[in-house]
Simulated assay, not measured.
Amino acid sequence: MPEGHTVHRLAAAFDRAFAGQRVRTSSPQGRFSEAAQLDGMVLLGAEAVGKHLFLPFAPAADVDPGAPVVRHVHIHLGLYGSWTFAGDPGFADAHAIGAPRLRMGEREEELDGAADWRRLVPRPTVRLRIAGAHGLADLTGPTACEILDAQGRQAVLDRLGPDPLRPDPGGRERRRFVEAVRRSRTTIGALLMNQKVVAGIGNIYRAELLFRARLDPFVPGRDLTAGMCEEMWEDLVALMAYGARTGRIVTTQPAHRDVEARIVERSRGTRQNGDEDPEVVPREKSFYVYHRQTLPCRLCGTTVRSGDLAARTVFWCPRCQSVRSRRASWTRENPAAPWALEAPARAPAG
């Protein structure tokens, strides 16, 4: 399932591709018949909140996004959802965002010329197609795809906790996170997967954030100090901001990347955008504990463990994360994030 940084990248892609344009909408699959209500309307932009995407449609470009006439398409990609893009040169900096999919047209006849994308026939699985002046986007396999009014959009937002990638003037969202964690008897590993506590975290960020914080995943939230929670929030903001910029989750310090540079791949493997690019940090060097069960910890050599928590597999080092009340010394001594020490030459596509 795409984590929050991916959905924020998706919202940015829609802003660049369609914001302010009058677009055509359809549902080739037929399961989103409401697309006919939006056909010919202006797509005002895009909004990401946690793992949720909102696309506001209005009769004209000068309509206020909060006006009653605006219709918000609410999309949650879930495990299998994906957006696939095609268009003029420079239209989109990624061919797909979400679950792995073929490039649009890979199973169709070869097309020539700048207007090729206009001739692409949608696959029968396309739930929603949005076409603008310079390109189009196809949605397949989402968990949710629905039209909401302003009240319905707000109802979704009210169910979500703070999003580390949204503006937080005055630190209100950080305080919401700290308070939600500290008043709960639930384990911190389960709390981090609860979208009502913090929106946008998935299994990779959970495992890596807890390792960087040296926190046992099974410690109750109420046992943590406010300072520990605040440090965890700040680290999460930095990690996800890097992910939103590059499309990749990288949590390791450069000095640790070549130490036991292995992960335990599943059948489909842990995929990240730009894996084929030799200039990016490869996935086997990107994580401390995620998918590294049975392998030695990069820092202490102890075997990384895995177990079930909050209906997902959690990964942790029983030695590094056995002390509950201290941060990692290398984090204190090296406050610069790993990407600040070794920034990629360019953001990989995807």
Score class of each variant (00 low, 15 high):
A115V: 10
R159S: 12
V126W: 00
E179T: 15
R118Y: 03
L165E: 05
Q195S: 14
L128H: 01
R206Q: 04
R127W: 15
V181F: 09
L120N: 01
L210N: 03
Y205M: 04
W117H: 01
P142S: 12
T84N: 12
M193C: 11
L210D: 04
I97A: 04
R129D: 05
A150N: 12
R183P: 01
V121P: 03
R119P: 06
G170M: 05
D138N: 11
L102F: 08
R185W: 07
P169T: 03
G161E: 07
G81N: 07
D138T: 11
R183E: 05
L120D: 03
E108M: 11
G98W: 09
V126F: 05
R183F: 06
N194V: 07
G141D: 15
R103P: 11
G171L: 06
F91W: 15
D163K: 08
A150V: 11
D93Q: 10
W117K: 00
K196Y: 01
R123M: 09
P100C: 01
R182F: 13
P162G: 08
P142K: 09
D149P: 11
R172P: 06
K196D: 11
D112V: 14
H95M: 13
G113L: 13
R176G: 02
E208D: 08
E146R: 14
T125W: 08
E173W: 05
R159P: 04
R123P: 04
E108W: 09
L209V: 15
H74Q: 01
T84S: 15
A99S: 14
K196P: 00
V156D: 00
A150W: 09
H76A: 05
G141Y: 14
P167Q: 12
R127T: 13
A86P: 00
A199M: 08
R153F: 01
V156H: 00
R172E: 15
L192F: 03
R172V: 15
I97F: 10
G202E: 06
A92V: 15
E208Y: 05
M193D: 05
V198S: 08
R174V: 08
R159Y: 02
P164Y: 13
E208Q: 02
R153C: 01
G135P: 02
H74F: 01
P164K: 11
G90V: 10
R153A: 02
R153V: 02
T140V: 13
L102A: 14
R166M: 12
L148H: 06
L139A: 05
K196R: 15
G81C: 06
F91V: 12
V197Y: 04
D112A: 14
M104T: 07
F91S: 11
R118F: 06
S82F: 06
N203E: 07
T140S: 10
V156Y: 01
R127L: 15
G161F: 00
H76I: 04
E179V: 12
A144T: 13
P122A: 14
A180S: 14
R107G: 10
L191P: 05
R103E: 15
E108H: 12
A144K: 09
G90M: 12
G113Y: 15
G135K: 07
A180N: 07
L102V: 07
G105H: 08
R175P: 00
C145G: 00
V197S: 02
N203C: 02
R129W: 03
E173M: 09
M104Y: 01
L136W: 00
P89M: 13
P162L: 07
P162H: 09
D88G: 11
R123V: 08
R129K: 02
